[in-house]
Design a protein around this nucleic acid. Structure first.
Lengths: 262, 262
DNA sequence: CAGTGGTCTAGACCACATC
DNA sequence: ATGTGGTCTAGACCACTGA
């Protein structure tokens, strides 16, 4: 075998053995293939929803056996970057389609239905200055510009949750216009379609707090009511923080469900 | 190959092809092996911390190739039931040892340290009657007996978290005595060592609530203070609910961290 | 040193989807 | 009919562990 590199396409990124560092087993070949495939997805060679070449084609391209490429793809599938369908092929994950839509939304009504199943109301959507917490989380300048969205979710007509969202306009220029016009139910789908940014991980820090005057007004309840506060940072496939979000939820008929296994 | 079943030991459970249903690919062989290994662990053939036979030995025992058995074991490793160590062997997971101890405890101080790193104070430990919520979660009779524990955790000397724990005495006879005597930092380690019950999954429902008079007394703060309430049900390897736990935490210098990926 | 799990290959057959 | 991913085999070499 000649460890052929991937050549030819306009999207060719880096041949696997390009650095002189491919001494035997420095890093397993399947992990090198995995990294290389991630870079090719990142760079847009295959966009969300599109199909990858077959295992055999990729194996030929890399000059490796099918089994090695298969192991790389299997890890991508476990991590949710691609999904595999027998007889059809391997597809880049999209928030569109049937692949676990809204898999990052863990709020449930106490009766079991998911709170995300009703579209949110957009109260405002504008350019703004990042809050200190958002700026730190997004690793941007303390007074950098962001798109800011304020949304409310209802359950049986009553408002139960507010979402304050900030996205760097440097990373996503024009995002405030898109959100303003489309008012999407899934912001992550919008990021994916307009900026090729695939959200693959979110960190959520959860606290209890008393309702501020603003909370009380938006959620129509007394100031001081205990509320659940979830501060989220969403990261793209490339590991960049893309979105900061502060969700505040009234939990008398709602809860956050976390199932931890392994 | 003759698809030899596992014979001989006193712990032999079920040969893989025992039912007449091993028509080709009804269920993949590696999944059958996986299920069989889980049953053998459940039944105590190898206890937490002990080593499994090597892949080759298991493959010979089942009359399959090493690769098939490997795939079964790899899934067990991903699910956290076993851990693999090159050159040493495959071990049944234990909460003891270095395998992600306290991996179900997601409370952190705002400075980043884990709240579980200081041993809790045991305030009380007794036999009691299950609360309605606990009885429902543990799938036991509404007035069934449980062991009830009340613990408090401190941060820099100040109490920040109470834990109210109920465990069915039917499933774990004598557990109240063990907890009373040992006051273990990890209840799951105690369940594992005394009852061969391995906790592999917990469901947590999170809400905000106002401090009750009892909360206020235990945490030394005003009644009505917003607190984070986490209602946990812990499940054993066999899927039975084993423990119900209500954690109440003051979150002005503490948070619950959930990292969601895939 | 022998034994372990980790990687890699090259082949085979299967169920499934699409045309 | 063709091509896909899914399963399974049988061999090889490697790095690491522990006696």
């Amino acid at each position: 075998m000649d460890r052929a590199a991937v050549e030819g396409g306009p999207h060719s990124v880096l041949p696997i053995g390009a650095s002189g560092l491919d001494s035997p087993m420095a890093m397993p070949l399947y992990l090198q293939v995995k990294s290389h495939l991630i870079r090719r997805i990142l760079v847009g060679e295959w966009k969300p929803g599109e199909v990858l070449p077959s295992e055999m084609k990729l194996a030929e391209g890399y000059g490796l056996s099918q089994g090695t490429v298969r192991k790389a793809i299997e890890e991508l599938a476990v991590e949710g970057l691609v999904s595999r369908h027998p007889g059809r092929g391997t597809f880049v994950t999209s928030h569109k389609g049937d692949y676990r839509p809204f898999r990052f939304h863990l709020f449930y009504s106490d009766l079991g239905s998911r709170l995300v199943e009703v579209a949110p109301d957009y109260l405002s959507c504008s350019r703004s200055i990042a809050s200190p917490r958002a700026a730190q989380a997004l690793q941007i300048d303390l007074r950098a510009e962001v798109a800011e969205v304020l949304r409310v979710r209802r359950q049986d007509g009553a408002p139960v949750m507010t979402e304050n969202i900030m996205i760097s306009t440097e990373l996503c220029p024009g995002i405030e216009t898109i959100l303003q016009d489309e008012k999407p139910a899934s912001i992550y789908l919008a990021l994916e379609q307009h900026y090729n940014l695939l959200i693959v991980r979110v960190d959520e820090r959860i606290r209890a707090r008393a309702a501020s005057a603003e909370d009380a007004r938006l959620l129509q309840l007394p100031t001081g009511t205990p509320l659940l506060e979830v501060e989220r940072v969403a990261f793209s496939l490339g590991g960049e923080p893309v979105e900061w979000r502060l969700t505040v939820c009234e939990t008398s008929h709602t809860h956050y469900l976390n199932q931890i296994s392994g």
